Amino acid sequence: MFTTDTTDQQRELLDEMRQVIDEGDFTGWRSSTLHAGQDGCGTAGVTQWRSLTDLEERYAGLGRRNGTVPPFKRISTSVHLLKTEVVFAQHRSDLPGIEMSPERDDYTVIIVLDVAQQDQSALVQVLGRPDEWIKTVPGYRSHALCRGIDGTFVVLYAQWESKAHYDAFQAMPESARPQSVRHRRAFTDTLVTAQWSSTYRVVHARSAGSQAVSITSQRGPWQAGATSVRSS
């Protein structure tokens, strides 16, 4: 996850990351999905690997070898490289599954929750439970819970129909939520030491053995609307 100060820097960062995704052919790499910031300048890249070993071998000394990391740091105001594994996922009952694609219009929310190592298991247990109620909330599509490999955080990756739907969910009074949900939220608050979040739209994706798919916009790659999909 990268943050930037301006839309021009975001555009430059997206271009750099697209190039890395399109030219990448690494042992154990399975897919990469590039997200452009919606309500703030920045990007998020979700990359799936066959194993943690493959990931670590790829990035061991990468910046010193070929300068791939320094350009990102030059453009960005902050860089967060988060190694995780998915431990839970669910989607709305009328959807066939969870998909990250530039051909979709998901309003994506990524939330990082910091937690003490001794409390991560408890946080994962409470957040990684099926939630039938949220499936009934207007605009909800899916969410996944990822456990930080180092034990100090978890990541919530959620897809919504629109910003308006997500904002309405966030503004919902506690009294409107089921009691079980209120209890879960209250318990989570006792474990989380800090949190931060950003919102995104998927703009580029490529999987091993397939062509990349990208979305372009007449108003800039960070904005929804006036878009066309192309394969490259």
Rank of each mutant, 00 (worst) to 15 (best):
G128E: 00
A60T: 11
E174N: 10
H204K: 06
G37C: 10
V181G: 11
E174R: 14
L156R: 13
G151F: 04
V155F: 00
G28A: 05
K163L: 05
G148P: 06
T43R: 11
E85G: 15
C146H: 13
A60K: 12
W29M: 07
Q170A: 13
L52Q: 09
G37L: 10
I21A: 03
T7R: 13
P173L: 04
Q159T: 09
V79P: 02
T6P: 05
A205M: 04
L14T: 00
S232I: 09
Y140N: 02
R58M: 05
P71Y: 01
V115M: 08
R219T: 15
E12K: 14
T27Q: 08
G28N: 06
T190G: 09
Q211C: 12
T7V: 14
L145W: 00
S207N: 11
Q19V: 07
A158R: 07
Q223S: 09
A226D: 10
L55C: 04
L52H: 09
G67S: 03
A205K: 06
S175A: 14
G97P: 06
D94W: 01
S214R: 13
P138A: 05
L62S: 11
T227W: 00
F2G: 05
G24K: 11
V137F: 03
G45L: 15
H204I: 02
I134P: 03
L156N: 14
